[in-house]
Computed example of a mutant assay.
Amino acid sequence: SFSSYIRDYDFSVLLPAVSEHATSLTIPDDFGDLHGNLFQRFLDSDAYQRKFTASPVICISVSTSKTYRRTENHHPVLGVEYEQSEYSLTDEYFRKMGLRVRYFLPPGGKAPLAYYFQGDLLGDYSVLQLIGTISTMETFQKIYRPEIYNMNAAAAAVYQPKLDEQDYSRTQIGYDREERSQLAKKQGFYAAEHLIEPHGAALAQWVAAHPADLSHGGGTL
């Protein structure tokens, strides 16, 4: 989809290029603007609204660069809520898509999941929809990131995910993370060649003329 290709361009082509000669990661001011704007226009489109009555919930892994703290809030389906004081680059990227974020450790789970959404995560979706989201993503993450989601002990009250965690169990299903990284670069360079480079000026003008609505994302992170 356009989202996958432009996202891979942003993270696998643009960021490495602008940070190549810098002493630390350099984030352009307009990073994620094009992707976020296109995503919001997609949600507003007749094509989306004819098929779906609710906005999507995107569920992914928490960030390995941040620390999460358990709260007293507990939801019967989503589980125990975690919070963090400093949002990640991914959180900011999703904010430009008009999405807010909350983190919950599901019952029986090992680590919190990050949920990106518009509206009310706890009130806009049925129990079955939430269970389906958790089941799908937790199963995938146990395979993709077993160091985090298949640890032998659940996340502590103060938790920072680590991909070098040693106390975890491997699943019997292999996932080649290096292959996925290479695919991201291929898709990113494809987007650069066929979209960003030939049409970059026109796309920049379009984004400037049609700024994304960040109100759903809860303001600046």
Score class of each variant (00 low, 15 high):
Gln40His: 01
Phe42Asn: 09
Tyr9Trp: 13
Ser215Pro: 00
Pro112Thr: 00
Phe117Cys: 03
Ile196Pro: 00
Pro28Val: 12
Phe42Arg: 00
Gly174Asp: 15
Tyr103Leu: 05
Ala111Tyr: 03
Leu214Asp: 07
Ala22Gln: 14
Ile27Val: 13
Phe140Arg: 14
Arg95Ile: 01
Val18His: 08
Val80Arg: 15
Val101Tyr: 05
Asn152Trp: 01
Lys110Cys: 03
Val101Ser: 08
Lys110Asp: 09
Leu163Arg: 07
Glu83Pro: 05
Lys162Leu: 06
Phe31Pro: 04
Arg70Asp: 05
Val18Leu: 01
Leu38Arg: 04
Glu193Pro: 10
Asp10Phe: 06
Ile134Lys: 05
Glu72Asp: 15
Ser1Thr: 05
Ile58Ala: 09
Leu25Ala: 09
Pro161Phe: 05
Pro28Ala: 11
Gln182Glu: 13
Ser19Asp: 08
Tyr82Arg: 08
Gly218Thr: 05
Thr26Met: 14
Ser135Leu: 00
Gln49Ile: 01
Leu43Thr: 05
Ser24Leu: 10
Ser3Trp: 09
Ala208Val: 01
Tyr9Leu: 14
Tyr116Gly: 08
Pro198His: 00
Arg41Asn: 09
Ile27Asn: 03
Gly98His: 00
Ala191Trp: 04
Tyr159Arg: 01
Tyr103Gly: 07
Gln84Lys: 12
Leu128His: 14
Ser55Ala: 15
Ala208Thr: 02
Gln166Lys: 12
Glu165Thr: 08
Thr90Val: 09
Phe94Glu: 01
Ser55Pro: 11
Arg145Ser: 12
Val101Gly: 04
Gly32Phe: 03
Ser65Ala: 13
Gly132Val: 04
Glu138Ile: 02
